[in-house]
Amino acid sequence: MKIAVLSGKGGTGKTFVASNIAAIAGKSVYLDCDIEEPNGHLFLKGPVIKETDVNLPMPKIDHDLCDGCRKCVDFCAFNALAMISEKITVFEKICHSCGGCKIICPQKAITEVDRKIGKIEERIYKEVELRSGVMTPGEQSGTKIIDMLIDSVKDEQNTVIIDCPPGSACTVMDSIEDADYCILVAEPTTFGAHNLKMVHKLVQIFDKPHGIILNKSDGSHNPSKQYCLDNSIPILLEIPWRRDISDFIADGKLAVEMDPELNKMFKSLLDHVKEEVQP
């Protein structure tokens, strides 16, 4: 079973929820797809036991072979090539590694070289295998990193928890594509409800079974809750705003290990999701 945890923006408690579910799930795999700021390892602690580079092939121009015909410049749909002072320049961060320019070049002046855009770090915390995608700062697209993470659990028998990137960009879509269930985490503010709406639309497009966790509920008016009620979205859990919970988070502690009440809450949440996925 694969459970994706999403939120419309960072800081809603997405990782808090995802890491606690993983901890309660026993034997499980935690995929940290929040590649710009992976922080699952702040809760699921352990030394890095394996590190794998993620590379993209980049065109390399042999300037001696190139006759300046510009066919590659005209071909590139992403405008990643420019002819400056009689020389082809590759804009690596724009290049999508489609390999087309290499095929089209009549002089065979283009070869490919690997360029590192990030890495995957593996850790073990108790029964949880943690795989974190880390994109090198400054890179524009980490799709390949997410694809590698998702690929690694293709035949996984244990529960998989996917900590998705915030927002609703294409990396989020890649992250939830194989998920059996989506958990949306929302804050009790107007802005939170707006973000919730965006990710809710996304899971609807993908037609995924889903439910909401209302985080930091303080009992007052909650626009996110209202949105759930108005659209009959199941509310899986309402986590109260509590000083001690923020302290657990700040200290990198797992709430399910610190607090019996939260432990019970997360356990019944996981049971509920299991039932929905495998009736």
């Binding site: 410049v73 590139c76 749909a77 992403f78 405008n79 990643a80 090539l81 420019a82 002819m83 400056i84 804009f91 724009i94 999508h96």
Partner: peptide, 17 residues
């Protein structure tokens, strides 16, 4: 390049070059 998706700036600059 005005309407192209990514790298519009590169193509536009190429035009000016």
């Amino acid at each position: 390049a005005a309407m192209s998706q990514g790298g519009a700036g590169i193509k536009a600059a190429q035009l000016v070059v």
